[in-house]
């Protein structure tokens, strides 16, 4: 019998218009220095990352999707089973921000009802080209009751933080039950421990 080496598995999805930076968020070193490697040519479909949150070992499986219209049926098939969705726009491109509403509708139609969402305003390193203010990003997130963060895949700002926040939100939902418990970090994670690590 195979031993289970983790407590929880969260499937996360990156979605948003073409060009907002989803692949760069997943693929760290996309700069030219490495663009000749075999892997960068084929591209990464998903990553498995292990994080520890409140004493639990959590595997994050993070999937990239294609933003282009013609791939939408494929993208939609990725929604099934996703527990968290990163909805990405580009702070230097108004259209990608406007389309957030469209993506949210898409999520409502195709994803699990209780999927945890987070909006990311990416390319925050390009302040001089910004057309979507931080306030506008915050406002739309508040309106839909979703978390929000500005990120830069290029400068590696807030990327890890965004994923841990999304993972924590899912953890709260699946194991905390009452969201207020989240403040109470020490006590939440005691129940429901499966000791499958220590088999036979």
């Amino acid at each position: 019998m195979a031993k289970k080496t983790y407590d929880l598995l969260f499937k996360l999805l990156l979605i948003g218009d073409s060009g907002v930076g989803k692949t760069c968020i997943l693929f760290r070193f996309s700069d030219d220095a490495f663009s000749t490697t075999f892997i960068s040519t084929i591209g990464i479909d998903f990553k498995i990352k292990t994080v520890e949150l409140r004493g639990k070992k959590i595997k994050l499986q993070i999937w990239d999707t294609a933003g282009q219209e013609r791939f939408h049926t494929i993208t939609t098939s990725y929604y099934r089973g996703a527990m968290g969705i990163m909805l990405v726009y580009d702070i230097t491109n108004e259209k990608t921000f406007e389309n957030i509403v469209k993506w949210l509708r898409n999520i409502d139609e195709h994803a699990n009802e209780d999927v945890e969402k987070m909006i990311l305003g990416n390319k925050s390193d390009m302040e001089e080209k910004r057309v979507v203010s931080t306030e506008k990003g915050e406002a739309i997130a508040r309106e839909h009751g979703i978390r929000f963060m500005e990120t830069s895949a290029k400068a590696n700002i807030n990327i890890d933080r965004a994923f841990s926040e999304l993972a924590e939100a899912i953890l709260d939902k699946t194991h905390g039950k009452e969201p207020q418990d989240a403040a109470d970090r020490v006590t939440v994670n005691i129940p429901r421990e499966r000791n499958s690590n220590r088999c036979c």
Binding site: T5, I44, D45
Partner: peptide
């Protein structure tokens, strides 16, 4: 596959992923 602590998985090539 979930045994991996950290791993990147490529797009499908034939019947495998790198």
């Amino acid at each position: 596959m979930y045994t991996f602590e950290n791993i990147g998985v490529s797009h499908t090539v034939g019947n495998i992923k790198y």
